[in-house]
């Protein structure tokens, strides 16, 4: 029963990992950069929600209405002010800049909020659960968080598949110069992609911060888990990423069921195993995005 429970919890957690990962993949797909600050930006969103809760008494769900647009705006500005410039500096510059940014944001959070662990309070709802059999209960909140993750990923998939801007992003991902020849302003598109990525990571950050505790250094593991979800699932495939997140969540859940200290380690080992035997991931996309 313990095992079943671990699997169920892992699946639910995987939805959120995949949501963080989706933003990472989107930015990588469109402009071929890995935003090393992606994880700490999720944490930043959680702190934003925390502030709104503390000062205005807002519930984390309500705070999304402010945090998500604010993070999206930050993403747009970040792209325009820093990352565009970094993109022109060759292959290493974006990595150096986003890593520097991660360190800066993390330490600013540390200065502002101290290293104390925090948790967003979703109220009575946080403890409610559905009893399936005895010993196996699914919390309403983890279920909702996972559903939100899947919904946002599905929405992102529809956006990329159906909209004019989504098509332009896929085209740019395939061939940036040819996309410009179609009248696509790649820099505006980059800014929109980063805005979407930060908007989605804000949702993930608030849900993750409500599910479990966080502190300013939580960005590191957030980034790592998202990356593992992407690689396990297969680069360039949103549904693969979702699968990757679920596999990672289940591995962590099963590991932790054996010994709490093995949770994260089990996830890493599954990632390394996939890298060793199936480097293109479990669900590689036909054409890499």
């Amino acid at each position: 029963m313990n095992t079943v429970n671990a699997v169920v919890q892992g699946v639910l957690l995987g939805g959120l990992y995949a949501l963080v990962a989706a933003g990472l993949s989107l930015v990588f797909g469109v402009m071929r950069i890995v935003n090393l600050a992606h994880g700490v930006l999720a944490v930043l969103a959680a702190y934003g929600s925390l502030l709104l809760g503390e000062h205005l008494g807002w519930n984390p769900f309500l705070s999304l209405l402010v945090v998500v647009p604010a993070m999206a705006a930050l993403g747009y500005a970040l792209q325009r002010a820093l990352l565009d410039r970094a993109l022109r500096g060759g292959e290493l510059a974006p990595l150096l800049v986003t890593f520097g940014l991660a360190i800066v944001i993390q330490n600013l959070l540390l200065e502002t909020f101290s290293a104390d662990t925090q948790r967003l309070d979703v109220g009575a709802f946080g403890g409610a659960s559905i009893e399936l059999t005895d010993g196996l209960a699914i919390g309403w909140f983890p279920l909702l968080a996972a559903a939100a993750g899947v919904l946002v990923i599905a929405g992102l998939g529809q956006f990329l598949a159906r909209t004019r801007t989504g098509r332009a992003m896929r085209a740019t991902s395939d061939d940036q110069e040819a996309a410009q020849l179609m009248g696509i302003d790649n820099r505006r598109l980059y800014a929109v992609a980063t805005a979407i990525a930060l908007g989605t990571v804000a949702i993930a950050g608030v849900f993750l911060g409500s599910r479990s505790t966080f502190d300013p250094s939580a960005g590191a593991t957030t980034l790592i888990f998202a990356f593992e979800a992407v690689v396990i699932g297969g680069l360039g495939s949103l549904w693969g990423t979702l699968l990757g997140g679920v596999v990672l969540g289940v591995a962590q859940g099963l590991g932790a069921a054996i010994d709490p200290a093995y949770g994260v380690l089990a996830g890493h080992l599954v990632f390394l195993a996939v890298l060793a035997v199936r480097p293109r991931g479990l669900l590689p996309s036909a054409v890499t995005a």
């Binding site: 950069i33 890995v34 790592i224 690689v231 390394l272």
Partner: peptide, 26 residues
């Protein structure tokens, strides 16, 4: 293992490897 990844993904991959070593040593 690490060389199966490139660019930014290589960077995070090396980080994961370091985390694995840390967790094992612990």
């Amino acid at each position: 293992l690490a060389f199966r990844l490139t660019g930014g993904y290589f960077a995070i991959g090396t980080w994961v490897i370091a985390e694995v070593v840390r967790l094992l040593v612990t």
